[in-house]
């Protein structure tokens, strides 16, 4: 009744990636997300194992995009396990998606974001909110706000650069300590 999501077996040669390069990039990626070295190594290894498996079954257009996404998931799983150990969680808002980034979710970081967002033109704030919170497409946002999709993208880029700079100025580094 339903067609399978699996394609026919692919030409192996075509799927022959440089796994070493991928592994190094994934390690770097996880480190950049603030995880410790040993964790980055473990996760990178696991990511490669899963990727190898996936490439046997599916054709993958962007190995790195998929690798980073798997890494995000594994990192999330790890934090979930860790947060189970910490007891004092109120049942009412217990979440199975714990915070990935202690630094970026801290009260202090939120205050910095708040201030930075307030300084932005309202249009830019609105664009960020719609894209980030509501996952509206750039085109839909542009149509609603009467600007081009390209202009929407520029607002996002500009806004994120401002946010990053605000963190830098406050001396908050996105990379965690070992």
């Amino acid at each position: 009744m339903l067609s399978s999501t699996r394609g026919a077996p692919y030409d192996i040669a075509q799927q022959d990636f440089d796994w070493c390069a991928v592994q190094v990039a994934v390690q770097r990626y996880i480190r950049g997300r603030g995880a410790r070295h040993d964790i980055a190594d473990d996760i990178a290894q696991e990511v490669i194992a899963r990727l190898v498996q996936l490439t046997r079954e599916q054709q993958i257009a962007s190995v790195f995009a998929l690798a980073f996404r798997i890494a995000d998931n594994l990192l999330m799983d790890m934090h979930r396990r860790e947060s189970r150990l910490s007891a004092e969680i109120d049942d009412d808002w217990r979440s199975d998606e714990p915070s990935l980034d202690r630094v970026l979710d801290s009260r202090r970081a939120i205050d910095i974001f708040d201030r930075c967002l307030k300084r932005m033109p309202q249009l830019r704030r609105e664009v960020l909110m719609r894209r980030r919170l509501h996952q509206e497409s750039c085109r839909a946002i542009g149509e609603d706000l009467g600007i081009s999709a390209k202009a929407v993208e520029k607002h996002i880029t500009r806004g994120m650069i401002d946010l990053r700079r605000a963190l830098d100025h406050a001396g908050i580094d996105l990379v965690g300590q070992d």
Partner: peptide, 21 residues
């Protein structure tokens, strides 16, 4: 990669979502 990781962390952070909210 480093920049992509950091900007992803920022983009996905709950902190940013909270501030936008």
């Amino acid at each position: 990669v480093e920049s992509y990781a950091r900007m992803s962390a920022l983009w996905q952070s709950d902190g940013l979502a909270a501030a936008l909210h």
